[in-house]
């Protein structure tokens, strides 16, 4: 193109149009970077598989562990691989109530995912609100909010969650609430750190001096630029929420066995750890460990890809 607006210096060589960078191509770049680590690809595959199996549990599992009528005490303590009264093989054995362990683990995994994901999402939303508000408004608001966050970060999350669950009582909603309160501080701290750095940049000043309303500056300008580190924290915090919930359930303050999560399954099996019925606690334990490790591996690789020092 020729540049007609210039009075001197001749036409400006404007580089030929770079390809438009759409959401789709950005996603493809992300994937190209991500798949350079085979372990992370395997971990992602594992997480996806676990999600499919657990949320598709009613279709996949040989038995509905919630349906008391389907349980038969004659099937109690079957070893892995034995065939029960239902006429099918219990791949991972059965528990003291004759519950098929594979089915229980799949349903339990679903409970764990639901709790982990919803606690993670809610904690993310709360943490972003607190962190952005603190960073943008500064001074007293910032001091007050961030001291509360610091105070909370100095306490073990499990302790806080234990106290909250003891106060709130058992149930999925209560557990999620306890996890959100215990975990939002991590998001708030990360958001605050990233937003404090971004806030000083000229594009924020330009948006403010246009002038644009505060909510628009916060949501359209500041927030999109602090998201990358938050995605990483979110991944890790989902894994941590799942582990926390399992811990609470294991300690007996989480979910009851009628609503099995991985933690309550391990807890139930733990009663028999000194007998030879180790499959009762080992298999849910392995499922929990694999899930948490896989999510963490995915989070690590996302961190690596989003790190600006690795950007191309």
């Amino acid at each position: 193109m020729s540049d007609t607006t210039l009075s001197e210096g001749g036409p400006v060589p404007v580089p030929s149009a770079p390809p438009a960078e759409t959401r789709a191509t950005r996603l493809r770049h992300f994937w190209d970077d991500y798949r350079r680590a085979p372990m992370a690809v395997a971990a992602l595959g594992l997480v996806v598989l676990m999600l499919l199996l657990s949320f598709g549990a009613p279709l996949v599992a040989p038995q509905d562990p919630y349906d008391m009528a389907a349980l038969d005490y004659a099937d109690a303590f079957l070893r892995p691989g034995e065939t029960g009264s239902g006429g099918y093989v219990h791949l991972l054995g059965t528990d003291n109530a004759g519950r098929d362990m594979l089915s229980a683990i799949l349903y339990g995994l679903k409970t764990s995912f639901v709790i982990g994901l919803s606690a993670g999402a809610l904690a993310l939303a709360l943490g972003i609100s607190v962190g952005l508000t603190a960073a943008y408004f500064g001074s007293r608001v910032e001091a007050l909010l961030m001291r509360v966050v610091d105070l909370q970060l100095s306490m073990p999350a499990i302790l806080l969650a234990l106290v909250l669950v003891a106060v709130l009582g058992q149930g999925v909603a209560q557990i999620v609430l306890a996890l959100v309160v215990a975990q939002y501080a991590y998001f708030a701290r990360t958001t605050h750190g990233a937003a404090t750095a971004e806030r000083r940049k000229d594009y924020i000043e330009a948006a403010r001096s246009t002038p644009l309303p505060t909510h628009r500056v916060l949501l359209r300008h500041l927030l999109p630029n602090v998201m990358p580190p938050l995605i990483v924290v979110a991944t890790v915090q989902v894994a941590s929420a799942i582990a926390l919930e399992a811990t609470l359930s294991f300690l007996g303050v989480g979910l009851p066995l009628t609503e099995p999560s991985l933690g309550s399954l391990i807890s139930n099996g733990f009663k028999y750890i000194h007998t030879d019925r180790t499959w009762l606690s080992i298999y849910p334990g392995v499922a929990l460990m694999v899930t948490v490790v896989a999510i963490n591996l995915v989070g690590d690789q996302v961190r690596t890809v989003l790190d600006p020092r690795n950007s191309r």
Partner: peptide, 22 residues
């Protein structure tokens, strides 16, 4: 608290003055 839209500013560093994600 409230500033005029009738004065607009052009900053020094064009690498910092545009929202990189917009």
């Amino acid at each position: 608290t409230k500033l005029t839209p009738n004065v607009q500013m052009i900053h020094q560093d064009p690498f910092a003055s545009l929202n990189p994600r917009m």
